[in-house]
């Protein structure tokens, strides 16, 4: 599908925001400004952005522990995200969620999820709402290759087919679940085949190429919006870093890591749009510059921000003892 110049700019803007945000997260984590764990989305930018590009705020996504990229792709505010990830007042969840539970319902982002396989059943429910209320909207369940082995994911796929709901299963196959390769853990080898066996169409997509992801998502959206039930995409991508920031990765060779980095969705996008004379390098550079400033501001603001008020500890519960 041909995208307008503005749309191309928006796509690059989101992909680069993820890149800059996650590199900053890596840095702030090392500096001790981010508590807990941080699973970054570096290398997978084209996947999240390609999937979410044509979604509105009323379309829904269920995310994973590696959710920052999905948030940004869905339009969440980076300052609110940075505040949340640092556990500060004013964060998207008031500092109560953190990286692994970040959510913004106003953007149709139903939450990162620290339970592997937690989101797909929820996404099926969100799709059921759309069908019931005839909104014409869809719901996307992001899962990894590792999550594709979870029973909840099988159940969600089958039920989506049985109930014929507009759910899109976006399996981001980055080759690893934690420290174990997908080639070991995914029996039969193909996640797309699994989805097909439940009775939905499925495609294997090059997740390094924004345009490939976006095109495939276009077909998924058409299928779902026409009332044909769920659709699945197995998006092949690379995890640039370890499972979490700080993972020593002795289980991956230096050559493999180099190969992963060579499959970088950002330069590929730049190359494609500049060679086709759709956008100019200077325009892309200007986008990058503006985003770096925005991320800088988000990080500085979050570092300086106060922690949540202690009174919020027992807020948002319906019973106290």
């Amino acid at each position: 599908m041909q995208l307008s110049r503005d749309e191309l700019k928006r796509a690059y803007q989101r992909m680069f925001t993820i890149r800059a945000f996650e590199e900053r997260v890596e840095k702030e984590f090392a500096a001790g400004n981010i508590p807990g764990f941080a699973h970054v989305y570096l290398g997978q930018e084209a996947s999240g952005v390609g999937i979410c590009h044509d979604l509105t705020d009323e379309d829904l996504i269920g995310s994973t522990h590696r959710g920052h990229g999905h948030c940004i792709a869905k339009g969440c505010d980076v300052k609110g995200m940075m505040l949340e990830i640092m556990g500060k007042a004013g964060g998207l969840c008031g500092g109560k969620g953190g990286s692994m539970h970040i959510a913004d319902l106003s953007k149709g982002m139903l939450g990162a999820n620290a339970i592997v396989g937690g989101a797909p059943p929820i996404a099926v429910g969100a799709a059921l709402t759309q069908k019931y209320k005839k909104t014409g909207r869809v719901s996307v369940a992001f899962s990894g290759d590792g999550a594709s082995n979870q029973g909840t994911v099988f159940e969600a796929m089958n039920m989506a087919v049985v109930l014929k709901v507009p759910a899109i299963f976006a399996f981001e196959n980055n080759g690893y679940g934690e420290h174990t390769a997908a080639s070991y853990s995914v029996g039969g080898g193909s996640i797309a085949d699994r989805a097909r066996s439940f009775g939905m169409p499925a495609e294997v997509v090059d997740g390094v190429d924004f345009f490939a992801v976006h095109d495939a998502m276009g077909r998924a959206l058409e299928h779902c919006r026409a009332g044909n039930g769920p659709y699945a995409l197995e998006i092949r991508c690379y995890r640039f870093l370890g499972h979490f920031v700080g993972d020593p990765q002795a289980y991956r060779t230096a050559d493999e890591l180099k190969e992963a980095r060579a499959n970088d969705p950002l330069p590929l996008f730049r190359k494609k749009v500049t060679e086709a004379k759709l956008l100019e390098a200077a325009e892309l550079d200007a986008i990058e510059k503006a985003i770096l400033a925005e991320v800088e501001d988000a990080a500085q603001t979050a570092i300086a921000a106060p922690p949540p008020d202690l009174k919020s500890l027992e807020k948002d519960v319906y019973a106290r003892y």
Partner: peptide, 20 residues
């Protein structure tokens, strides 16, 4: 369990994780 060894199917060393 999950990653009780670690590195299965990967390009590098197996057994380097020994549970998270």
């Amino acid at each position: 369990g999950e990653d009780v060894a670690g590195g299965q199917g990967a390009t590098g060393d197996v057994g380097v994780v020994g549970s998270v």
